[in-house]
Nucleic acid binder design. Structure first.
Length: 155
DNA sequence: AAACAATTCAACCGCAGGACA
DNA sequence: TTGTCCTGCGGTTGAATTGTT
């Protein structure tokens, strides 16, 4: 293994190699969409140059898979979808791509974001551990001091 | 209306692993 | 077997948006 990253490690919005970073413009979206519709994705590394984009292939692939793909279902998650995510997460854990594969039209990135911003908090409010889905011990005991007392007893 | 805090989510990074020469 | 290229994944960041005081 071991090679230079495909993209600049700089956090600036345009790398020293001349590649653009940050939010995509409508014009860039159009270029990428039209290119893939005509030629297919093919090689992501060479796609930006062929499509006339000042982006790295990785950025193009991410934009396509998470936003531009025609089969993506946008908008809020339904109650059924949310329940499905919780159920799948209890079995698969943080395997977001595996969960996304079972939810047509949803991307792993979208599910991961939704989990971290909505579902995780909902489970915590319900007194459930978002990792194990089991009732939280500290929540049941009501305070951290009681928890430390318990751990002292166990030692 | 303004300032500040909290939340959301698009986009990034680093790494793992498959394919291939 | 080893090194390189490429793709895909999970975790994280930070700008934009929304809510609260």
């Amino acid at each position: 293994m071991g090679r230079a990253p495909a993209t600049s490690s700089s956090s600036s919005r345009s790398s020293s190699s001349g590649l653009k970073k940050g939010p995509w413009t409508a014009e860039e979206d159009l270029k990428l969409r039209e290119y893939i519709e005509q030629h297919g994705a093919g090689n992501w590394r060479t796609l930006p140059e062929n499509a006339g984009l000042q982006r790295c292939g990785k950025s193009c692939r991410l934009r396509w898979t998470n936003y531009l793909r025609p089969d993506i279902k946008r908008g809020r998650f339904s109650f059924e979808e949310e329940e499905a995510i919780i159920q799948l997460h209890s079995v698969l854990g943080n395997k977001w791509s595996a969960i996304a594969a079972r939810l047509p039209g949803r991307t792993d990135n979208e599910i991961k974001n939704y989990w971290n911003t909505h579902i995780r908090k909902r489970l915590l409010r319900m007194g459930l551990d978002p990792v194990t889905h089991a009732p939280r011990l500290d929540h049941l005991l009501g305070s951290t001091s009681q928890l430390s007392n318990l751990s002292n007893l166990l030692c």
